[in-house]
Computed example of a mutant assay.
Amino acid sequence: MSAKSLIDLLEGHLKLHKGLLQLANKKTESLKKGDIEALTAIMKEEQKYIAAVKQIERERILAVEKILSSLGHTQTEPTLTICIELMEEPERSALEILRDKLLAVVAELRNINQLNQQLLQQSLQFVNMTLDMIMPKRQEVNYRKPNMAPSSYEGSRSLFDSKA
């Protein structure tokens, strides 16, 4: 396995992560608008990217292992950093640039995903608050000993009243 193939794998890795970043930005807009259909479509597309990232990551690990073994380096955990340190100059600089770009994209993706998680939590809080306003909790009309645990059905919400 050559350094060129590792560079190609990292370029593919970077391209996939940039695609995930674009999807994350679209997901943010869908969350802000409350567009569930668009969000569902984005999540399906995201799963395809994630599968491709997993595949290329496996290939990258194998490429690094092969390069390190061909250079006579035995490391328990073959990493890209060790591989970069052992490379000659033209490949070393190309790998460093790709690594830095990939780290930047992953950091930006992490930030956007944290924002999306906060937006989802706020949406869920809003839904729960709305449900609590629509269906207030019933006060207990039966006597119960103070140290007795409440029954399992007391805290559940139901849109259907089965009592006739």
Rank of each mutant, 00 (worst) to 15 (best):
M1A: 12
M1D: 07
S2R: 03
S2W: 03
A3E: 05
I7V: 07
L9W: 01
E11R: 10
E11W: 05
K15D: 09
K15C: 05
L21N: 13
L21C: 04
L23S: 07
L23Q: 05
S30F: 08
G34W: 07
E37C: 08
E37H: 10
A38N: 05
M43A: 13
K44N: 08
K44G: 09
Q47Y: 07
Y49L: 12
I50K: 05
K54T: 14
E57Q: 06
R58W: 04
E59A: 14
R60L: 00
R60F: 00
L62C: 13
V64W: 00
V64G: 00
V64M: 00
E65S: 06
E65I: 00
T74D: 06
Q75V: 14
Q75W: 04
E77Q: 11
L80D: 00
T81H: 08
E85M: 11
E85D: 15
M87S: 10
E88Q: 13
E88H: 11
E91C: 03
R92G: 01
R92A: 08
A94T: 13
A94W: 03
A94H: 05
E96R: 09
R99H: 06
L102K: 06
V105G: 02
L109T: 08
R110H: 15
N111K: 15
N113P: 06
N116T: 07
Q118C: 13
L119M: 08
L119C: 02
L119R: 00
L120T: 15
S123Y: 11
L124H: 15
L124W: 08
N128F: 02
T130D: 07
L131F: 07
L131G: 04
D132R: 10
D132M: 03
K137I: 06
Q139S: 12
E140Q: 11
N142P: 01
P146N: 01
A149R: 13
A149Y: 10
S151L: 15
Y153E: 13
E154P: 03
G155I: 05
D161V: 08
S162E: 06
